[in-house]
Design a protein around this nucleic acid. Structure first.
Length: 491
RNA sequence: CGGGGUGUAGCGUAGCCCGGUUAGCGCGCCUGCUUUGGGAGCAGGAGGUCGCAAGUUCGAAUCUUGCCACCCCGACCA
């Protein structure tokens, strides 16, 4: 087979870059750091969106839309928030262009300077809380459960398709609650939604946990995240959920009258996942032949490819293929019959493997004669012949099996690459030689965390919520530790 | 923002050191014929501001200067 991609083992990061482009997911645009998401990539994102959107609606949230522009003064209302984002904001200063005096092109019209500069949202807390102030007066207005699908801009130094781009697409939930307990509950509920989505739809196991102070969202009291392990042993933060306390309520003066008639600040959360999930999806399952997509998110689940020599053969095959397509389609399966005669079957096989289509059916004269269909599953590339009669059952079972199998594979990979360090020496050794999650004891201080990061380039991904809470001693300082935390090198 | 590298057709590249035919090759694209169970073959064809600008020169893809863009490695980040 012709080699299209850089091999994963040879150069993982090149493999990823090649794959995103060759599988037609996205490409770099002529705008620095900004990508074009191509139709095939966008179709996957749309599937993710529709599943997540339903999950949000099912948990009581409504969609709304807030402006792209944020008055500069809003951003500085919450001290930590502005400090966290100031370094990567794009700013609009003017609202008009004019013909250049030298006749060459157009220039900014300096007379059209904005009185207050506008920041392109890096996230929407400030504009949203400024708005919520007007929406919330009494406990009857709470909880306020809003989500928005939007683009945001963070002026990143170094970008990579999907994993880190200057502009990206995401959803951001912003909720307001009467009590602290309810807000914390909401934060954890949405973290759970993300982890279920990752597990059941992306077939990607994740660890739920709390972020340390250094990794916390700017303006949050607590940040929770789901952390996934990629095939190169690096961790990818795949979603975050923040308990914002009353920080934004205080900054934007959002108060409500409780049942006792007392004026109180509301409690807030925010949570989001982005097009980074696309990167996670690619890196979680794919191989040297191309993408491996979970059937539940694949834009195209089944492709049928005809194999024929003569025109008359194609006619018979097309009739049979059309019939199969109709049956599969009626069963809710997305299917395409690729009868283009401009490409040969072998070319198509490689193409659909590159694009990660979970199941491929081939129909040739031999199949017509024997009443069979050749079935190839993308995850294992295993090829088998099945009777054409109950092809719907066969394909349905196979799609389920692939979904399960790639999850199990990703899960096993994570298990195999999750290790425990009981001394700092052992830890450094593991981080250096066994990329993956390393569970170790830490004393809870930023100083120790910084030392570890400086020594090893590994960071604390999270303090896990689930699992055993084994007590121990910090591997660096020997001070007491309530539980092991997750370390890894991260994207 | 530091360190390194690269810009030649849609993509990948040769040529540059040592200036001198019509800038070469592979993939892709177009036309035709033969093909079609794992990226087909042959024949013909189209496609180039050699990143941009200035300079040196009889002559610049090639030398000089400036600028721009992108990639890789660091610091920063969903």
């Amino acid at each position: 087979m012709a080699k299209i991609l850089t091999s994963k083992n040879e150069n993982y990061s090149q493999w990823y870059n090649d794959l995103v482009i060759k599988a037609d997911l996205a490409e770099n645009s002529s705008v620095r750091g900004c990508m074009v998401i191509k139709p095939y990539g966008y179709a996957i994102w749309e599937k993710m969106q529709s599943v997540l959107d339903k999950m949000f609606k099912d948990t009581g949230h409504s969609n709304a839309y807030f402006p792209l522009f944020i008055p500069k003064s809003f951003l500085s209302r919450e001290a930590d928030h502005v400090e966290g984002f100031a370094k990567e904001c794009a700013v609009v200063t003017h609202y008009r262009l004019k013909n250049s005096p030298d006749g060459r092109g157009i220039v900014v019209d300096e007379t059209a300077k904005l009185e207050e500069e506008l920041v392109i949202r890096p996230t929407s807390e400030t504009i949203i809380w400024n708005t919520y102030k007007n929406w919330i007066q009494s406990y009857r207005d709470l909880p306020l459960l809003i989500n928005q699908w939007a683009n945001v801009v963070r002026w990143e130094m170094r970008t990579r398709l999907f994993l880190r781009t200057a502009e990206f697409l995401w959803q951001e939930g912003h909720t307001a609650h009467a009590t602290k307990e309810e807000a914390i509950e909401e934060t954890l509920k949405m973290l759970d939604v993300y982890s279920v989505f990752a597990r059941d739809w992306m077939a990607m196991p994740v660890i739920k946990g709390t972020k340390t102070e250094t990794e916390r969202f700017a303006g949050a009291v607590d940040t929770y995240s789901i952390e996934a392990l990629m095939q190169d042993g690096k961790a990818l933060q795949s979603g975050t959920s923040h308990f914002l306390g009353q920080n934004f309520a205080k900054a934007f003066d959002v108060k409500f009258l409780d049942k006792q008639g007392k004026l109180e600040y509301v409690w807030a959360t925010s949570w989001g996942v982005s097009t980074r999930l696309m990167g996670a999806l690619v890196m979680a399952h794919s191989d040297d032949s191309g993408l491996v997509l979970p059937p539940k998110l694949a834009p195209l689940q089944v492709v049928i490819i005809p194999i024929y020599k003569k025109r008359e053969e194609l006619e018979v095959i097309a009739t049979r293929a059309g019939d199969i397509r109709q049956q599969l389609s009626a069963a809710g399966i997305t299917v395409k019959f690729d009868d283009r005669d401009t490409y040969k079957p072998g070319w198509k096989f490689n193409e659909y493997e590159l694009k990660g289509v979970p199941v491929r059916l081939a129909l040739g004269p031999r199949d017509i004669e024997n009443g069979t269909v050749e079935v190839v599953r993308r995850d294992t590339l295993e090829k088998r012949s099945f009777p054409a009669g109950n092809i719907v059952e066969t394909v349905k079972n196979l799609l389920d099996e692939i979904q399960d199998n790639i999850y199990r594979k990703a899960f096993d990979f994570r298990e195999k690459n999750t290790t425990r360090a009981n001394s700092y020496q052992e830890f450094r050794d593991l981080i250096e030689n066994n990329p993956g999650f390393v569970l170790a004891h830490w004393d809870g201080t930023s100083e120790t965390e910084e030392k570890i990061t400086a020594d090893t380039r590994a960071t604390i991904r999270c303090i896990p919520l689930d699992g055993e809470k084994e007590k121990g001693k910090c591997m660096v300082t020997g001070k007491p530790s309530a539980q092991r935390v997750v370390f890894a090198k991260a994207y």
